[in-house]
């Protein structure tokens, strides 16, 4: 079984992105993916229309921007997504504190996006390193909220090993593009129990993450954790 923790649907014309539910499901089938955690890219980045995400194979997360009215969000989701390199968040103010309080109360997973594309192709308002630093400081006081760091590269992961080893922190693997065998190396350093399969579709070819995970040097047990075991546990499924 494979659960993709990093998928988007919807439209973002500026980035030539347009994927409806049927296309998303087809991409999942072609890549051997059974279920996907998904949200609307248009809601996150603006400028595009949303799409219906109701389907038994899709696990919707809310998109939360700094100006989102938290009170207006319904509680019937398993998690929320924030994009602090693209939206100016800040992890020391009341917005972040309120978000954590609500997430803790609802039992939401908080998925933190560092990048959707290479920053040399899609500019970030705040550098990933600055977000990771702030997040590291902030998480010290938020040990009950479950965090999924998404779009992190290998070198960032290496720089924040203590953070990534925390029991309430997981990280998603789609942007581990350097150097050779990054999945194997991080499984050794951090442990496969912290790693979540993610494709970053529709920005990336979803099959690539399937291909590289299947051909990695990970043991079958490690692979099973990354492909779905960790996600099932995190999503209480």
């Amino acid at each position: 079984m494979i659960i993709d923790f990093n998928a988007h649907a919807g439209a973002w014309p500026e980035q030539h992105i347009s994927v409806d539910k049927d296309r998303l499901l087809r991409l999942m089938d072609e890549s051997g993916i059974d279920m996907a955690v998904v949200s609307n890219i248009g809601e996150a980045m603006g400028g595009g229309s949303g799409t219906d995400l109701k389907h038994e194979r899709l696990i919707p997360f809310h998109t939360v921007r700094p100006d989102t009215d938290l009170k207006a969000l319904n509680g019937h989701v398993k998690g929320i997504r924030i994009y602090p390199t693209y939206h100016a968040w800040g992890f020391s103010g009341s917005r972040w504190a309120n978000l954590l309080e609500r997430a803790e109360g609802e039992g939401w997973i908080v998925q933190v996006y560092l990048r959707l594309r290479d920053p040399r192709a899609l500019l970030q308002q705040v550098a990933s390193a600055d977000v990771m630093q702030s997040l590291g400081d902030a998480i010290e006081s938020s040990c009950y909220v479950r965090l999924v760091i998404t779009g992190m590269n290998f070198f960032e992961a290496e720089s924040y090993l203590p953070l990534l080893r925390r029991k309430n922190v997981w990280f998603e693997i789609s942007h581990l593009q350097h150097p050779m065998a990054p999945l194997d190396k991080l499984a050794r350093k951090i442990g496969s129990s912290r790693m979540l399969f993610g494709t970053n579709m529709p920005f990336f070819y979803p099959f690539v993450t399937t291909f590289r995970t299947m051909h990695s040097g990970l043991s079958q047990e490690e692979m099973n954790r990354i492909l779905s075991g960790n996600a099932l546990s995190l999503l209480d499924m």
Binding site: M180, Y205, F207, V208, T209
Partner: peptide, 17 residues
């Protein structure tokens, strides 16, 4: 562009296309 890049991630693009 290996070894700076992960060969599997680069190679996977072709069967994926």
């Amino acid at each position: 562009d290996a070894p700076g890049r992960d060969t599997l991630a680069q190679l996977g693009k072709i069967p994926a296309a």
